[in-house]
Amino acid sequence: MLGSFDFDVIRRALPYLFYEGMTFTLTLTALAALGGLVFGTALALMRLSGLKLLGRIAGLYVDFMRSLPLVLVIFWFYFLVPYIGQWLTGASRPISVGAFASSLITFIMFEAAYFSEIMRAGIQSISRGQPAAASALGLTYAQTMRYVVLPQAFRNMLPVLITQTIVLFQDTSLVYVLSITDFLGAASKVAQRDGRLVEMYLFAAVVYFTISCIASFGVRRLQARIAIIR
């Protein structure tokens, strides 16, 4: 019962939870969001390029990734990345890349599929007159995308992109299956060591909840502001 709730366990674990765990979680979230956005935008541009083969490949990739559970994808890359590393570098044995690099690659590849759908919707939401006007001014396709279409698409989709990043932030907890010390992993390790599952998991829940709530509140504010600017 809650009468035996031990706040001191949490207090003592705080440095470990945040310096080790949360740092890992936030770094992974930020880098994966950035990488996923870049790769995802590339996929979206491939799909909208009008080149059939390129569009088909990007489409297949996106559908493929979106059909699989993230846990399975995490396992896939965890075992696959060392072999790819070996193949790329021509080494004689599979290369050990470490937990962080392996998870980062996983999340970039996985999230790119989701970010690409968002960017595709964003690009399609821009009126056809915009690229036409840019071409009329003599801008090349690349310039049109870089200076006219993508900035607008990005701004229109910013709330959705951040919402997806909040999902990503929560999803990084799944690296638990690789026994990595992210925030939840750290909480879980303390929980098992001290036999304090209730305190640690409740605390982890509160922390995830607070961060996600604040972030989604920010998204709502942003959405309201963007709506006004339009």
């Binding site: 929560q170 209730v198 829940a205 989604s216």
Partner: peptide, 24 residues
């Protein structure tokens, strides 16, 4: 908001590990 702002994994842990402990 409650169910959307916590990782599914954490929610499962709450139901699986925490709930039986805090019930009578």
């Amino acid at each position: 908001e409650f169910f959307r702002n916590m990782p599914l994994l954490v929610q499962l842990f709450l139901w699986f590990f925490v709930l039986p402990e805090i019930l009578p």
